[in-house]
Computed example of a mutant assay.
Amino acid sequence: MNFFKQHKWSIPVIILLVTLIWGYAWVLMKEGLQYMGPFTFSAFRFSIGTITMFIILWFLKISRPPKWAYKHLLVVGSLQTALMFLLVMYGLKFVEAGKSSVLLYSMPIWSTILAVLFLNEKVTKPKVIGLALGLMGLLTILGWDIWFNQNPGVILGEALIIISAIGWGASNVYYRKHLSQLNQMQTSAYQMGFGTLGIMLVTFIMEGGQPIEFTPYSIYLVIFTGVLASAFCFTVWFYILNLIDMVTATISTLLVPVFGLLLGWILIEETITWSIFIGSTLILIGIIISTKSKKPRMT
């Protein structure tokens, strides 16, 4: 935390790194469905992420959180790990990786609404403009096919991912309200641990006994998403939420679908259209306007 306070330039750099990793993780999650069920993939991913986090806690000699925090960590873990990724991974069965990332990152609008209601955060005019441009970009990327000519499977997948976006927004606000004073590594490890238990239970019920194909590539998919996209990025995300206001932080995550779409096109040949290009440009402009409107809140 002190490093970020002393080197303010590091905040946008670390946000860029986290969003790039998360964008790439969308491609890997989609690829993982070729080797195992969606819930099974999530169970492996977050089990590895949780083990990694607790090894780090042990190495750094970070103690357990206070007793009062466990119920709040359970809520955050249920929303941000279990609910979000169970729904996202199942939705990925029907929706392309790039478009799935776009749907999930409607999260800023839910975070903004909930932050205003429960955290009394002020939304300045530049932030409203930035958020509006970002959402226009998301709608442009999705195109009219979100409303017309969809088959039931695609509609179900998109609906599940939007619900997961609302859950993520709620978890961000809940964290700021109840757990922001807790050590960020404690928060990341324990919420992930609680969420993983929920994912494992659902996996046992829904996919117990289904075949799993282990190859060097499928193992890489699980390890990358578990160690980097989960353990590393979620820990850094909690640091970010303590350093800058909720609206700026969540709007910055709109970079993730831009990276997800671009990497989906490069790596697994998903289609990028003019609507995707124009929408991505609107997202970037929105981020610049919103983040330049107020200096980062250093605590």
Rank of each mutant, 00 (worst) to 15 (best):
M1I: 07
N2T: 14
F3N: 06
F4E: 03
I11L: 15
I14R: 02
T19L: 07
W22H: 05
W22V: 01
G23S: 12
L28E: 03
M29F: 13
G32Q: 08
G32L: 03
G37M: 05
F44N: 03
F44K: 09
F46K: 04
T50N: 07
T50Y: 01
I51L: 15
M53W: 03
W58E: 11
P66A: 11
A69S: 13
K71N: 12
L74F: 14
Q80H: 14
L83D: 00
M84I: 10
M89E: 12
G91Q: 10
K93C: 03
F94G: 01
S100R: 04
V102W: 00
Y105P: 07
Y105W: 09
M107W: 08
M107P: 01
T112P: 03
V123H: 04
V128W: 14
L131D: 00
L131Y: 02
A132I: 13
A132Y: 01
L133M: 11
L133R: 07
G134D: 01
L135E: 04
I141N: 01
L142F: 03
W144I: 11
D145L: 01
F148A: 14
F148P: 04
N149M: 05
Q150W: 08
I155W: 12
L156K: 13
E158Q: 15
E158W: 10
I162S: 11
I163M: 14
S164A: 15
A165N: 07
G167P: 01
W168Q: 00
A170N: 02
N183F: 00
Q186F: 01
T187C: 08
A189E: 08
A189F: 02
Q191W: 00
G193D: 03
I199S: 05
V202K: 13
F204S: 07
G208P: 12
G209C: 07
G209R: 06
P211L: 10
F214Y: 14
P216I: 12
Y217A: 06
S218R: 05
Y220M: 14
S230R: 09
C233P: 01
F234H: 12
L241R: 04
N242P: 04
S252Y: 05
V256W: 02
W265T: 12
I266Q: 10
E270I: 12
I272Q: 11
S275I: 05
I276D: 14
I285K: 08
I287C: 06
I289L: 09
P296L: 12
